Amino acid sequence: MENITLEFISDRDLYQSYMPFMKHGGLFIRTTEQFELATDINLTVTLPDSLEPSEIKGKVTWITPIGAQNGTPAGIGVSFVEDPDNVRNQIDKLIGRLLNSSEPTLSM
């Protein structure tokens, strides 16, 4: 199982990475490291203005390779599998006003 630590400084950064279309939520992680689909991931996530990180278990469900069209950065999408701290709801509250934005994200 891979371990990845993420710290989001602003709501906009979080919005750019959030994948609300995943059944239980997910995050896009910029990386040039090679991953296989369905790889188990342990995420340690610190949200904006949060004092403590949260742990999430996830799976790689999206891969954007290096050199993707439209200048999209390389990375992986990790869908949440176990979210004991209910990070998805915390994210929805933090960036709810941005979710209907026409601004593109890193995954769509």
Rank of each mutant, 00 (worst) to 15 (best):
M1R: 06
E2K: 10
I4E: 09
I4P: 10
I4H: 09
L6M: 08
E7H: 09
F8K: 04
S10E: 15
S10G: 09
D11Q: 13
R12L: 12
Y15W: 04
S17T: 02
S17Q: 03
Y18Q: 05
Y18V: 00
P20L: 01
P20Y: 03
F21S: 04
F21Q: 07
M22C: 13
H24F: 06
G26Q: 05
G26C: 02
F28C: 09
I29R: 06
I29P: 11
T31I: 01
T31P: 11
E33S: 07
F35S: 07
F35R: 04
L37R: 03
L37T: 01
A38C: 06
A38P: 04
A38T: 10
A38D: 15
T39R: 13
T39S: 15
D40G: 01
D40M: 03
D40A: 03
I41H: 07
I41R: 08
T46R: 14
T46W: 06
T46F: 06
L47C: 08
L47V: 03
S50R: 08
L51R: 11
L51V: 04
E52H: 11
E52D: 12
P53V: 01
S54Q: 12
S54K: 09
I56L: 13
I56G: 10
K57H: 10
K57Q: 15
G58R: 03
G58F: 07
G58T: 04
K59I: 01
V60Y: 08
V60P: 11
T61E: 12
W62L: 14
I63D: 12
I63H: 07
I63N: 08
I63A: 05
T64K: 04
P65W: 00
P65T: 02
P65V: 01
G67E: 11
G67T: 06
G67P: 09
A68S: 14
G71C: 11
G71V: 05
G71A: 12
G75A: 04
G75H: 07
G75R: 03
G77I: 00
S79F: 00
V81L: 02
D83K: 01
D83P: 12
P84S: 02
D85S: 14
R88E: 14
R88V: 02
N89D: 15
N89F: 04
Q90S: 14
Q90D: 12
Q90A: 13
I91L: 12
I91Y: 11
I91Q: 12
L94V: 02
I95Q: 09
I95F: 09
I95E: 11
I95R: 07
R97M: 03
L98F: 13
L99V: 05
N100R: 08
N100F: 09
N100M: 08
S101Q: 12
S101V: 08
S102C: 00
S102P: 00
P104C: 00
P104K: 05
P104R: 01
P104L: 00
T105E: 11
T105H: 08
T105M: 05
L106R: 10
L106S: 05
L106Y: 14
M108H: 12
